[in-house]
Every structure is written in C-alpha cells, then in structure tokens.
Amino acid sequence: MRALAALSLLAVAGADGAALAQEARTHFAEGWRLTDDGRDGRPAFARAAVALQAESAAHGAAPEHWLNLGNAAYLADDLPRALAAFQRGLALAPQHPRLREHLGYARGQVNLPKNRRGAPEPDPWPAWLPRWSPACWFVTLTALHTFGCALAAVGWVRRARGWWLAALVAWCGAGLAAYALLIVHQERALDGALPLVVVRADTTLHTGNGASYPRQSELPLLVAGMEARLRTERGGWVQVQFATGEIGWINAAQVLVAR
C-alpha cells in the first residue's frame, strides 16, 4: 500500500515536472514570438525563467537545465541571474562548450569600470590543454597509467630497458591527465571553501558589515553581474573578495550564490 502511495506521489511529481517544462517552453517560445514581432518579450522570458527555476529541484543535476535557465534569465534582462545559472552549470560540467560560450558572452555585458576592478576570475585552464570532461580525463589517466604499469611489469620481467622507456612515455601522458584533473579538483575545492557569488544589482561595497561603514576605497561601487568569492557572513552582510584583490562587505540580499 505504501509502495502504491509512493508510486502515485512520484507520478504526480513527474506530471508536475512535465507541466513545468512545457510551461517554460511555452513562455520561452512566446518571448521569441513577441521579440520577432518587434514587441517586448522580456516578461515572457522572465516567466520562462521562473518556471525553469521551479524545475531546479528535479533537473538541477543537469548542466543543460542551468544553460536553459541562464538563457531565459539573460533574455529577460536579468544578467546576474543568468551569470549565476551559467556558473552553476559549469560547476557540474566545467568544460561544457555552450555554457562557457554563454558565460563569456554574458560577462561581456557587465558594465565593469574602466580600470577593470571587479573583473571575473581568469580561466585557470591552460590554453594548450584540451577541454575534455573530467570523466574523459579520468578514463585517459586510468588507461595510460594501467598501460604504463603493464609495460613496466614486462620490462621488469624481461629486464629490458625499452619496455621501461615505453612505460615512461605512457606515464607522462597519465601525468598530463592527472594535471587536468588536478585543475578541476582545485576549482571545485575553491568553490567549496569560497563560494562564487554574483552581485545582483548596482550597490556599494563597504569596509564593514553595515551601511554606516565607509565605502571600500578601491572599489566603492559595484555593478550588477560582478563576480566575487564569499568569505564569510555576519548580520545579513557578506564579506566578498574579488579576483582583482578587493575585499569588502555587501548586503546579503544583493548577491546571488552561484556555486
């Protein structure tokens, strides 16, 4: 009986999810229809974003869900929410090409000051390293390392130097894969220690956890879409650190936790 009840609950939840997905797609399509007619499609895109946000519990593990949410939020002129959604997706799939492309495009729309203070973190991924998924790098590492071990074992049994050299080459490839995984691991560790936040609206950065504190001297004004790392929280204010080094306090309501 309990199993039957659970099944019926699951069926209801699935039906709700499907309805939400359909609703989001309907609003999204309506937004584009209005846009193509020369009218304002932003409200429809905003409704699509709300519907997609409601699906996050069900599809939050899929990078594509965050891509869709980011697209809808961006088209609804909600740049901070779009940036946060793209970052959430990239936390799941760091090398997702469309997520990276859309994040870069959305970042380009942030009205940063001319001195580039408050600019987002540079990409830690080396340009010469292929952008494979972590799973792909893991498989590469395992395969090359296993191959290298096998070659070394043969070299040990046969006491021949050539096998050892071949094993060394395989281990070099495995080291490259380990390096790629290390970058991803470090980024995830950084996300865990200092979550990434996006400034929700134009606001001020203070030296303490209150509006009565003076403004931060190097970066007194923040614009919507700036990205920073959350260091600590106190009394409804959060201390953030920007990639360009500035540290200050901002009202917690003014930030979106991206990942």
Binding site: A21, A24, R25, F28, G31, W32, T35, G38, R39, D40, G41, R42, F45, H59, A61, A62, P63, E64, H65, L67, N68, N71, A72, Y74, L75, D77, L92, A93, R98, E101, H102, Y105, Q109, S133, P134, A135, W137, F138, L181, V184, H185, R188
Partner: peptide, 26 residues
C-alpha cells in the same frame, strides 16, 4: 526591445535522461 543575444540563446537545450555529474572523476 529585448536584450540582443546570439542565435545559440534561441533554443532550450534538451535535458539528458541520466545524470552526468562527474564529481567522482575528481
């Protein structure tokens, strides 16, 4: 009247059937 965006913003990506989270890999 909307924010200009590349053509890739025009479509909603289909959601995968299974989870692709790769946290185990790192």
């Amino acid at each position: 009247q909307v924010v200009s965006a590349p053509a890739s913003f025009r479509t909603l990506a289909p959601l995968p059937t299974g989870s692709r989270a790769s946290a185990w890999a790192t």
